[in-house]
């Protein structure tokens, strides 16, 4: 009687019993696009295998698909994904009006969005910051990205970075390798070509990271705008120079299996994608980035110590967010290197 107690309440569910949930982030640089879909219910998320997804660009239907596969699972989770991936081909350009329609035997959901305008391609320059230890593999690369704002309107941006490593192998003419089934012809063959995202530190950039919160080079700074989102609020139709840094060896280091008679050539690129986002897209991404820091994702989420996550939503007849990002890409070649007899590349390059 005197003690406190807890009572479990089951709120009466409101809204439809089942509705289509859609998520998609379409890029103007892609031709292959994916829309993720599921059935959203009060107590569960169910796979939506019976949908037809149609894509309209500027009012014209450019793609229809009913084929889907199970979507990729959530990171760090062993739980099977309940969303399905519907893939289609379409060309989307900055300024296009895009409409996605999802229909099932009993439901229909649509989302209309306009691709943001193209932004000027940024200019990129690089400096090498020698390491204090004198070890070249600890050298840091400092990139300066000059961004010109689109005048006359509010803009929301993200600067993403990825790297591409290409390795070609030349087999000497006349050399026969029956075990491997080839005869050298003194021509180059590509043995490795991969592009992957790379995370760079914005710790020294006062625009992306105004507090300069991380002073420890070993600590990954989750507090400091990890995905480099920014708006033009402080630029106001002007321009800004952004600074990103990374260890040189994190890009350039590559070790592949190799043959002592071959010659190897490696080339290394960094891609800087300046993405122009809609406001909903920007808010959606920033909210989720902060989510991991405000504990709403944990089991005992309660809204007591944080405000609740009400994400932007532009799907009519369902829930979810469909966005288009207009991308301006800069390909920055770091350098290349020739090695005789081994495909072992590292910093410094030639």
């Amino acid at each position: 009687m005197l003690a406190s107690c807890e009572t479990l309440l089951l709120p009466d569910p409101t809204g439809p019993e089942r509705q289509i949930a859609l998520q998609a982030r379409l890029m103007t640089t892609d031709t292959l696009h994916t829309v993720y879909a599921a059935y959203s219910e009060h107590d569960s998320l169910e796979q939506a295998e019976d949908l037809t997804i149609a894509c309209y660009v500027n009012g014209e239907c450019v793609a229809v698909t009913s084929e889907s596969v199970v979507g990729e699972t959530e990171k760090y989770s062993d739980k099977k994904a309940q969303w399905r991936a519907y893939t289609f081909r379409a060309d989307i350009h900055p300024g296009d009006s895009v409409r996605i329609e999802a229909t099932s035997p009993t439901e229909r959901a649509t989302a209309s969005v306009k691709a943001p305008d193209a932004v000027p391609v940024p200019e990129v320059s690089m400096d090498v910051i020698p390491s204090e230890d004198g070890e070249s593999y600890l050298d840091r690369l400092r990139f300066r990205i000059h961004v010109e704002d689109q005048p006359g309107k509010r803009n929301w941006y993200r600067l993403s970075t990825s790297m591409r490593r290409v390795v070609n192998e030349r087999h000497p003419a006349g050399v026969v390798y029956p075990y491997y089934g080839w005869t050298g012809d003194d021509s180059w063959h590509c043995v490795y070509d991969r592009t992957e995202d790379i995370s760079m530190s914005n710790a020294t950039d006062v625009f992306l990271n105004p507090d300069g919160r991380t002073v420890d080079k070993w600590t990954k700074d989750y507090l400091a705008n990890e995905y480099n989102f920014f708006t033009d609020e402080l630029i106001e139709d002007g321009a800004v120079d952004l600074t990103l840094e990374t260890l040189a060896d994190s890009i350039c280091h590559l070790l592949l299996s190799s043959y002592s008679v071959c010659t190897y050539h490696g080339s290394f690129y960094v891609y800087f994608d300046l993405q122009n986002l809609s406001r909903e897209d920007y808010l959606n991404s920033r909210m989720q980035e902060m989510k991991y820091l405000s504990l709403t994702d944990v089991e005992f989420v309660d809204g007591l110590f944080s405000e609740d996550l009400v994400l932007p939503d532009n799907v009519k007849g369902g829930i979810g967010l469909i966005t288009v990002r207009s991308v301006s890409r800069v390909v920055f070649m770091l350098g290349e290197k020739y090695n005789e007899g081994q495909a072992d590349f590292g910093w410094p390059l030639d």
Partner: peptide, 20 residues
């Protein structure tokens, strides 16, 4: 009120849907 999912910069996530 519903179960849903969302796209983050690092992939897809389960997300409980709050309508308002």
């Amino acid at each position: 009120t519903h179960h849903s999912f969302t796209i983050g910069e690092d992939g897809l996530h389960d997300q409980l849907y709050i309508p308002s």
